[in-house]
Design a binder for these strands. Structure first.
Lengths: 332, 332
DNA sequence: TTGTGGAATTGAACCGATTCACCACCAATA
DNA sequence: TATTGGTGGTGAATCGGTTCAATTCCACAA
């Protein structure tokens, strides 16, 4: 079988305590011993047993990441950020896709509890609650990802979605658009609620008319469905703002197929600024969010909370979204 | 703190062994004792400590997934498949990105060993070896993902990349292209080696001339770099085949910017058939792979190997790639 | 030479469930 | 009465790191 700490100690001619120190507090070991032990570790291919470590210390070095869907490029980027940051701190990441379903979310949370994760990073599937008391009770830290927390007893890392909605409409207004379609997802999603708020606010100020087209999922297929609905409207809007880029891609395809020129006849604006936006049939204007950065920051915050929980002060980090102008929006 | 097995034993007036039996082999305990112990367990709200249990038994319900980069839509789809299948069997999945670096791959494998995963699903970063003896020694099952195994002592789930390369060139040949650029990644990547083999084979049969443009990473930026090189060639090829869709997107952008029409002046063919191909400036023809299915199959195979390791017969599953014709390829 | 302080190292106890060789007890058989 | 067999139960050893009180070592000052 594989080597354990005692084997290393014997081979290197030191005690088990010293080997443990080499692993966890290298600074208290003399350089000479350190080097010798490390060499032995490498020779034996020794890897510490996580269970034993966790059993004694009571803590694991794993976190759970719960997102609606990694297949959405925005969350893929976030996930990469989380993973890179966690890996730097020697944490492993459990990946969970909630598919925007509360049921699946709960199922995964219970799996994560079973796995005794140290903390959970979650983009809630639902606009309500976010208490996660059952996790907290078990000493599992929770930080909200891409959602702002209502109570200040937890960390959150988010992007200002209200402002994002505002920026979008302001941009369209500045191009002279007054008649705007807002293609959006279910109101159970917190981000949707906020973006809608921003949209409404800016529209009121700029006296624009917003017609809402609601879809159930935020993917390309649903974007196509939305576009078909738009084509049936009595009066075509002069601009379409979509709650994410995937929806916008779907809309774009259907409109182009219908022979409608973008942006000449209709301006199209997305949200997320996923990297493919640039390669689209008409390069997509969008509202950009620092996805990777979001993931990194959230993971760092969560891990810092896990490691010095009494020192730790909860913080709510909020990034600002930015308009990225490409070819799909133009003045009326 | 919460009660442990010894507390239960003391309170119920039995030995720790008996309590353990109540938990794991109730049939060997007398009904009277059974009932009394179970009552005590309920009273104390005792929940067995997973770490200790796993430390002793040596098994967890987790698997590791190591891919080059989840941000590549192909692997995102694979990851979703793995995750869905694992979740169905009540396994949790560790996500690891090797970034096509052997060093990172090894680092992650050691993290996975620490976490005592039951099995590992891996797309090797390197064309060599794939032995993973260090994992096997520790009783960790390994299955190769999107790579065919050379030895039959392990499972693998792959797509026929040689055939994929062939199909691509055959398609271009059938359109009358004889002068083809092959934009490809490092030869350390197994898939690249195979696709190149297919390309070469089909080119020989069809008497096409292949000029190879090699890049170091398979992303959009490198595709752009490759296209710039192509623009500098003495004679433009009449078709370009890219080793994946991301490269093709980059190539497409640069060519269109340079005023070159696709497919009128140059045909462009990608690989992977990621969903955005359909939304691209010129809808991208591509070689399609069953990514989600690949992930599901691999996870199921791995878990079945983990759970009945002596019953289990290693198998090599090979899916067939398919040509998806869109607008970016046309006859010369 | 002795004393002192700090750094380096030691190793036994511990985390909590599992395992298994062994014991106690009772009934049935010789 | 002695022997055998079977059931129910016991508790010390074990898994493999981590921790920490105790010890050793060494340099430098008195």
């Amino acid at each position: 079988m594989s080597a354990n700490l005692r084997d290393v100690a014997k081979k290197a001619g030191v005690s088990v305590g010293t080997v443990s120190n080499v692993l966890n507090r290298p600074e208290v070991v003399s350089p000479k011993t350190l080097e010798r032990v490390q060499k032995t570790i490498a020779e034996l291919g020794f890897v510490p047993n996580g269970f034993a470590r966790q059993l004694r210390s009571g803590y694991s070095r794993t976190i759970g990441l719960v997102v609606p869907d990694v297949a959405n490029p925005f969350f893929t980027e976030v996930a990469r950020g989380v993973e890179d940051a966690a890996s730097k701190r020697n944490y492993a990441v459990f990946l969970c896709n909630s598919d925007e379903s509360l049921e699946k979310e709960n199922k995964y949370l219970s799996v994560l509890i079973q796995q005794q994760v140290r903390g959970v990073l979650i983009t809630p599937a639902d606009a309500q609650g976010h208490e996660y008391e059952n996790l907290r009770e078990r000493g599992i830290s929770v930080a909200l990802l891409d959602t702002e927390t209502k109570n200040s007893s937890q960390c959150s890392v988010s992007v200002d979605d209200v402002r994002g909605g505002e920026i979008a409409i302001e941009h369209l207004l500045s191009l002279g658009h007054k008649d705007i379609a807002w293609v959006t997802g279910p109101e159970t999603i917190p981000q949707i609620v906020d973006r809608t708020m921003g949209v409404t606010k800016a529209a009121k100020v700029g006296k624009a008319e917003i017609s809402t087209i609601r879809v159930t999922l935020m993917n390309v297929a649903q974007g196509e469905a939305a576009a078909k609905k738009i084509l049936l409207l009595k009066k075509m809007p002069s601009a379409i703002f979509c709650a994410n880029d995937l929806l916008a891609f779907g809309v774009m395809r259907v409109l182009l197929d219908a022979g409608i020129n973008i942006p000449e006849q209709v301006s199209l604006l997305g949200y997320d600024d996923i990297s493919f936006g640039n390669s689209a049939a008409v390069p997509l204007s969008s509202i950009s969010q620092p996805a990777y950065q979001l993931g990194v920051t959230a993971a760092e915050l969560l891990i810092s909370e896990c490691e010095d929980s009494e020192e730790h002060a909860h913080q709510q980090v909020k990034f600002q979204p930015q308009l990225v102008m490409r070819a799909s929006t133009a003045s009326k």
